[in-house]
Nucleic acid binder design. Structure first.
Lengths: 246, 246
DNA sequence: CGCGCCTTTGAAGGAGCTCAATTTAGGTGG
DNA sequence: CCACCTAAATTGAGCTCCTTCAAAGGCGCG
């Protein structure tokens, strides 16, 4: 231990700054000038690594910070007293988690890593402080919260008025779009969640999800190999959505 | 007309101030000291009356302000290209509408009055401005946005994993609770929305809603006379929720 | 390489939907 | 003030889509 070699700056120890982060266009720094980003950097003190299947936070935990995903992905879920649970969202890099906790100063859902992941910890009190000084940060934060509300409305729409195959098509198109926004292929990606988790999110049983995947494959819309998805006919999937019931 | 008697201050012309508003405990002024409330008052310039079935705003309208309900009630809905629509929420006095518009600077849903109503118009730019100066206002605004997210998660839970009767029970209990918070009876109230609108919100057809109401009445949980509801057995309704599927 | 978890697929059953008829309430005009 | 008229609500019967229950296959991880 005493002979540990002196490495001036190991790669993993390099301070990861918002200004250097390639996710800044999706995340809190969006719209800030370099000076302001530096101030945000000071605020984002620590980062946390979360292993697959581990909780970032649990429902009931005191709320202290929000989290931006640097690497990996998460699901959030809500659990009822009787044991039923529902996945309320899947989060990807650059997305912010924990906003639900502001309301009652405790988290109201669980955040669980779908793969080994890393998040930036953003102490909420200090974020409010800084956003009182930096207008563009304040506005971007409000946009992020609002976006979450809009997203939730979309899910309500999906759960309330779409058939099983429409829900899955909407889900796949949404994933595709988010992968695209991160510089990945729009048509080929790897789902990190199980059929059961997709089903929970979409208000369907895992068997129904599996059957819908099979059906999409038979129809030539996608190629499905377990969690590996290749979209062959985006227009076809979109068409499924706009035809309404029956 | 010319002989109109001079009334120094007619009741309807009195400036309605946040500081005087009996909804302030539910609304934006919550947690502010009298001085701060006065500053908020200056910001809430105008009020708008909206007649039953009229729109407060429409999806696509440019976003300029958020709205706090002074009297009456509203529904918000989202409409898809294919014509399907879904009610995303019912809003009561003291609740804030329009938060979805912040994200893309346009409203993303319609807000429609369920009865003749009045709202306080809160210009959003000025709200951001003032909340940079008034910490407690900033925090209360964040709480209100967060509450909306939590509420939406609850609806997702309901739509994704509850049976028809559970959904209606949850809906009734939620209404009861919100009426209570406004000083009305927890057990007797008048619904302002139709069965069709309830159904849309709960992801059910209006016939299913109607049948569930009838069933609740047969079981002695509630007394239903069209829109007039009397809850006879709150515990019974709550028990419906905690029994899970099957 | 074996075990467990995830996924796929089949068959039967049920919750909620669709279609349809009737009743009721509330608003309007004579 | 009452009759009318339309919108909303109730109720029934058959059907559909999704669920449930069950079994087998496959992938990945230790």
């Amino acid at each position: 231990m005493h002979t540990k070699p002196v490495i001036p700056l190991s790669v993993t120890e390099v301070k990861i700054a918002c200004s250097q982060c390639n996710l800044r266009e999706l995340c809190l720094p969006f719209g800030l000038d370099p000076n302001e980003i530096d101030r945000l950097d000071e605020l984002v003190g620590s980062r946390r690594k979360i292993k697959r299947h581990q909780h970032l936070y649990r429902s009931g935990d005191p709320f202290e910070a929000i989290y931006a995903i640097r690497t990996g992905s998460f699901k959030t879920d809500v659990i009822l007293e009787d044991g039923r649970d529902q996945v309320t969202g899947f989060q990807m890099t650059g997305e912010v988690m924990g906003l639900d906790g502001i309301s009652i100063e405790h988290h109201t859902c669980n955040a669980i890593a779908l793969e080994d992941s890393e998040v930036c910890v953003i102490p909420f009190g200090r974020l409010e402080e800084l956003s009182r000084e930096v207008e563009s940060l304040q506005h971007q934060f409000h946009k992020i919260m609002s976006r979450e509300i809009v997203r939730d409305h979309g899910v309500m729409m999906l759960l309330g008025s779409m058939r099983a195959e429409e829900r899955l098509a909407a889900f796949l198109l949404n994933m595709s779009q988010r992968f695209t926004a991160r510089g990945f292929s729009p048509s080929e990606f790897h789902l990190r969640m199980t059929r059961d988790e997709i089903g929970s999110y979409l208000g369907l049983k895992l068997e129904t999800v599996s059957r819908a995947f099979s059906r999409f494959q038979d129809e030539g819309f996608v190629s499905v190999q377990q969690k590996h998805i290749r979209i062959l006919d985006i227009a076809g999937l979109k068409a499924l959505l706009n035809h309404g019931p029956t």
